[in-house]
């Protein structure tokens, strides 16, 4: 039986979460390979359409990682991102995918361990929720014989 491995998209701010991921790597910290990172110039670049598009293209979960509140390189980008993630939660609830599949995190560039922790946290959350309703059909379909994993 193949265990469900979620696809998670992480929109990471260049000034914090992306650097934190670098640090996590330098520190040899393990975090789930289910997280796919997308670098952004600021978490304020996030837009509800980007989040929805990620789900449409097969993501089971999405999170946005921006700087600590008050520390945004562009002053207010992370506050704006927070509002947009809130809006995305509402739309995802409306369309039946579930707002709990998207989350906003704040961390600084020096928080490598926290980056790994967030990745684990989101991985666990999405794993418990199961595949996105859009991926359920695909997940229940039998996998090709060669595609074996633990």
């Amino acid at each position: 039986m193949n265990e469900f491995q979620p696809k998670i998209v992480a929109f990471c701010c260049y000034f914090c979460a992306y650097s934190a991921a670098d640090l996590a790597g330098s520190m040899r910290l393990q975090y789930p390979p289910t997280v796919r990172m997308i670098e952004q110039p600021c978490s304020g670049r996030i837009d509800i359409q980007l989040i929805l598009q990620a789900f449409e293209d097969g993501a089971d979960g999405v999170y946005v990682a921006g700087c600590l509140e008050g520390d945004c390189h562009f002053l207010k980008g992370n506050f704006r991102a927070k509002l947009r993630v809130g809006q995305a939660k509402k739309v995802l609830d409306d369309v039946g995918i579930g707002g709990e599949r998207v989350e906003m995190y704040n961390l600084s560039g020096s928080m490598g361990p926290r980056f790994a922790e967030v990745a684990h946290e989101m991985h666990e959350r999405i794993k418990n929720l199961g595949p996105s309703p859009l991926n359920k059909t695909a997940a229940s379909a039998p996998l090709p014989a060669a595609a074996g994993s633990e």
Binding site: L52, Q53, E56, V91, P133
Partner: peptide, 17 residues
């Protein structure tokens, strides 16, 4: 234009299920 995109994506997400 933006709201058109969001509504279109939302409708597609709903109906794909």
């Amino acid at each position: 234009e933006k709201e058109v995109g969001v509504l279109a994506t939302s409708l597609r997400l709903l109906r794909k299920q």
